[in-house]
Design a protein around this nucleic acid. Structure first.
Length: 638
RNA sequence: GCCGGCGUAGCUCAGUGGUAGAGCAGCUGAUUCGUAAUCAGCAGGUCGUAGGUUCAAUCCCUAUCGCCGGCUCCA
């Protein structure tokens, strides 16, 4: 072992230090100010604690509060502060884990009683005291036996379980104040560095995420380096609440769900249905233009079909119980694919017939556990914008490329520009020849590259029957939603013995790709609503224009104008109530109607209209024709 | 499914061991008005459901259904 290590700094310079130097001293050697600002270090991209010895040569980076990685460090420390506070309030508490997550942190506890939201305030107060005390985080590297002894004394069986599973010889233990915790670190120098935090919620969570293990109580919180950032985050949460599609659905009279009928079953009201109709029409037109054919298939099918497809074997628990018809068991469909396969098998297919692209807005029903239902985002009956592509091995790459390209064009049309891909590869248990898997994964990768999409690879995350690409979109307030899925299927073509005759006159197995672009119409509608905050772009708005007569004197003129809009193919309503104009505007504004047309003496006399946009901006004295042909309308309505 | 919370009028919510209230929306009337709420009146609820405790339950207890926040799951 060498007695020196060489550290490369971010500016490219290399420095030499004696082996055994701690990160803080390495920082000090760079500059005393940096050492003061430092909260952690990174060696070759891995976090290490300032108090830890630098184990080997490599690229060294000093993390300060201004670093992009800083949040990970201080939120983790905040989780420890949370745990310390809980320990003070519940001396017999047992501690689970307390990691950082996107936008925050949590800690899991086993407590003698259930926490309430009132408890959060008490815990927060305790945390503030710990922050004010500026307790140093002390760092110790212990052997596993020593650590076991420590946590046995502290009566922390959950920690013992964790230590038992760590492969390393030594483990690090951090202590601040009265609280010691097994932890990889790194941590802040002391508990007073970050003051801007908020505890957000309490929830149950299985120990180690295993539903067979006991349920712990989890406290979620968030923390930021500055008050401004914390406020901005809290505002974002507020904004998300305002945009909640369940709330908007009620306010805008778009959809409902009824306990008497069944949870997770959606009723589309006229305005919601109108939006859905526009989405569906657009979707169908786009599919025809992009080389798809439509098919329609039944809602139920005999057990034979689901036995053959394998669904009864793999997903019986989430399929609705069969109904008996003429002595046969019929199941409500949880997927459309077996039906599309039946169509495929009505003929001998030639390689000349391929690719086949068959799309269907297919309504399926799946039994989802009661606790997972959520507005329109997780339901039991939903319509997939499904399609199946059947092609030869030679065609697969261009087909995948084409699906991706098509998908992105659809997302842009609906106003989503930020899309990210997630590629899931072969899991341990998988059907299908490995060469097919490899080819499929390669073509997925190349397609993603070709579209210049950012892509994360989920190694081993594919379904047993094939690899897949999922697309996540980012909404107006920065939240990601998983929507599109493009999945290979090596299972069903086999099970249904699908074939085509190749140029060689021999039978071959076609490739089968399932894809849903929007996912389900219900879920997509929910996301779309939240993205737009209910203020749908004009082309999707159920009511595009509302006519607001100033007084009853103007009703005749209003009717005339309404008729003009209707003949121009515009979705128009008139508010005939004898209320004041302010009242009508408020009502229209709350319904988020894109254009209000205010009609009074001025307009009736001149034969014009005054348009008030949803933004509040006014466009006075236009003719109806000029407005409908004008930029404003065009910009908003297509 | 699991943990915790919640369930009162169409909506948002107040309330109490002695069988219920407000605002908005709705309806009727008056008002005829120029850019986010005109005034008045009327009507509207077996307090999620089923048991139990009690002289008496919307309130306390139990079960159940649903919703909400998470966990697990999501072909």
């Amino acid at each position: 072992m060498s007695d020196k290590i060489v550290l490369t700094l971010p500016d490219g310079k290399s420095v030499e230090h004696p082996a055994g130097i701690i990160a803080l001293d390495a920082a000090r050697a760079i500059g005393p100010k940096l050492a003061e600002a430092a909260i952690a270090a990174k060696l070759d991209g891995q976090f290490i604690d300032l108090r830890a010895t630098i184990p080997h040569s490599g690229k060294l980076e000093i993390v300060t509060l201004k670093s992009p990685d800083a949040a990970e460090v201080y939120r983790h420390s905040m989780a420890h502060i949370l745990a310390e506070a809980v320990r003070k309030l519940f001396p017999d508490a047992q501690f689970g884990i307390g990691p950082t997550i996107e936008n925050g942190f949590y800690y899991d506890f086993l407590l003698s009683r259930s926490l309430t939201t009132e408890d959060l305030e008490i815990v927060e107060k305790e945390m503030k005291a710990i922050i004010a005390a500026k307790e140093p985080f002390s760092y110790a590297l212990l052997t596993k036996a020593e650590a076991m002894e420590t946590f046995r004394k502290l009566n922390q069986p959950l920690k013992l379980e964790l230590i038992g599973e760590i492969p390393d010889e030594k483990v690090s233990v951090y202590t601040q104040g009265e609280f010691a915790d097994l932890c990889r670190g790194p941590h802040l120098p002391h508990s007073g560095v970050i003051k801007h935090f908020k505890l957000l919620s309490v929830a149950g969570a299985y120990w180690r995420g295993d539903e067979k293990k006991p349920m712990l109580q989890r406290i979620y919180g968030t923390a930021f380096a500055t008050k401004e950032e914390l406020d901005a985050y809290m505002n974002m949460l507020e904004e998300a609440k305002k945009r909640d599609h369940r709330k908007l659905g009620k306010e805008l009279d778009l959809f409902s769900v009824h306990e008497e009928v069944g949870p997770g079953l959606v009723f589309w009201h006229p305005k919601g249905a109108r939006i859905r109709h526009i989405i569906e029409s657009f979707w169908k037109e786009q599919h025809f233009r992009n080389g798809y054919e439509m098919v329609y298939t039944p809602h139920i099918g005999r057990a034979w079909l689901w036995e053959t497809s394998g669904h009864l074997g793999f997903y019986k628990d989430s399929m609705y119980s069969p109904m008996k018809i003429d002595e046969f068991d019929y199941f409500i469909k949880p997927m459309n694919c077996p039906f599309h396969i039946m169509i495929y098998k009505t003929q001998n297919r030639s390689y000349r017939d391929l690719p086949l692209r068959w799309a269907e807005l297919g309504t399926v029903y799946r039994y989802e556990k009661s606790g997972v239902l959520h507005g329109l985002l997780r339901v039991r009956g939903f319509t997939q914008d499904d399609a199946h592509i059947l092609c030869t091995p030679e065609q697969i790459e261009s087909e995948i490329s084409e699906v991706l390209r098509f998908s992105l064009s659809i997302w842009r049309a609906f106003g989503f520009e930020k899309v990210k891909a997630y590629l899931a590869t072969r899991p341990e248990k998988a059907v299908g020849e490995p060469t097919r898997w490899d080819q499929a994964i390669e073509s997925l990768k190349r397609a993603v590259d070709k579209e210049g999409l950012e892509c994360e690879i989920d190694e081993g995350g594919g379904a047993f029957y094939g690899p897949k690409i999922d697309l996540k979109i980012k909404d107006a307030i920065g939240r990601e939603w998983q929507m599109t899925t493009i999945q290979f299927d090596f299972n069903e073509p086999e099970r249904f013995d699908m074939t085509y005759i190749g140029a060689d006159g021999e039978k071959h197995r076609p490739y089968m790709v399932h894809r849903a672009l929007l996912g389900s119409l219900e879920r997509f509608f929910g996301v779309l609503l939240e993205h737009h905050g209910g203020a749908m772009p004009t082309w999707l708005a159920p009511v595009q224009v509302i006519i607001l007569p100033i007084s009853d004197k103007h009703i005749d003129y209003a009717k005339k104008v309404e008729d003009g809009f209707r003949r121009a193919g515009i979705r128009v309503n008139t508010d005939f109530r004898s209320d004041k104009i302010g009242y009508k505007i408020r009502a229209a504004q709350l319904m988020k109607i894109p254009f209000m047309v205010v009609l009074g003496d001025e307009e009736a006399n001149a034969g014009t209209i005054t348009v008030r946009k949803r933004s509040g901006e006014n466009m006075p004295g236009l003719s109806l024709e000029a407005f409908v042909k004008g930029e404003e309308w065009k910009k908003e309505s297509c």
